[in-house]
């Protein structure tokens, strides 16, 4: 049994892959939760005076939820490749750890940005409806930060 593991396929090889899958979803969910909570307080404060704007003001919450879906996709991709140490090289583990960390931390950064922009933007849109287009643009630019992390993670995953 001990002869089947070697320097290239050590017993701790899958540990890095598992950590990659876990960090992908953990950090993405952390960012998405912060974005949802921060913009949710803004929506709750705004909706007291302008309840007809609910549909427009839900958009930051939806965009924060999408960040978590990026992490979910990468975590599912990595988890599909996990295997016993004999079939899972250490190199693969490193690649998967890098992919998970890249989408996880990018998602956390994007979630923080969406939360802060969503809070201020939703409160501002209640006062000046023309701000809506600007808020959407800023939210999209915050969202693509997470998308860049996803692209890098998928590119690493193909190596």
């Amino acid at each position: 049994m001990s002869t089947s593991t070697s320097a290239d396929n050590p017993i701790y090889g899958p540990f890095f892959g598992v950590m990659g899958a876990a960090s992908a979803i953990i950090f993405s969910a952390l960012g998405a939760a912060y974005g949802t909570a921060k913009s949710g307080t803004g929506i709750a404060a705004m909706s007291v005076m302008r309840p007809e704007l609910i549909m427009k003001s839900i958009i930051p919450v939806v965009m924060a939820g999408i960040i978590a879906i990026y992490g979910l996709v990468v975590a599912v991709l990595i988890a599909g490749q996990l295997d016993v140490p004999q079939n899972y090289s250490l190199y693969k583990g490193f690649i998967h750890l890098g992919a998970g960390l890249s989408v996880g931390f990018s998602g956390m950064a994007a979630g923080f940005a969406i939360g802060i922009v969503g809070d201020a933007g939703v409160r501002g849109t209640a006062q000046q409806p023309r701000l809506f287009v600007g808020m959407i643009l800023i939210l999209i630019f915050a969202e693509v930060l997470g998308l860049y992390g996803l692209i890098v993670a998928i590119y690493m995953y193909t190596k």
């Binding site: 549909m55 427009k56 839900i58 958009i59 939806v62 965009m63 999408i66 879906i69 990026y70 996709v73 990468v74 991709l77 599909g80 809506f132 287009v133 959407i136 998308l147 996803l150 998928i154 995953y157 193909t158």
Partner: peptide, 25 residues
């Protein structure tokens, strides 16, 4: 196959988000 499925899922996600923003606007 995994890459194609992931890219398709993300594309579907953005299309539905775009439809929602269009409807909200």
């Amino acid at each position: 196959v995994n890459i194609a499925a992931a890219v398709g899922a993300v594309a579907a996600l953005h299309v539905s988000l775009g439809v929602y923003i269009y409807r909200a606007y």
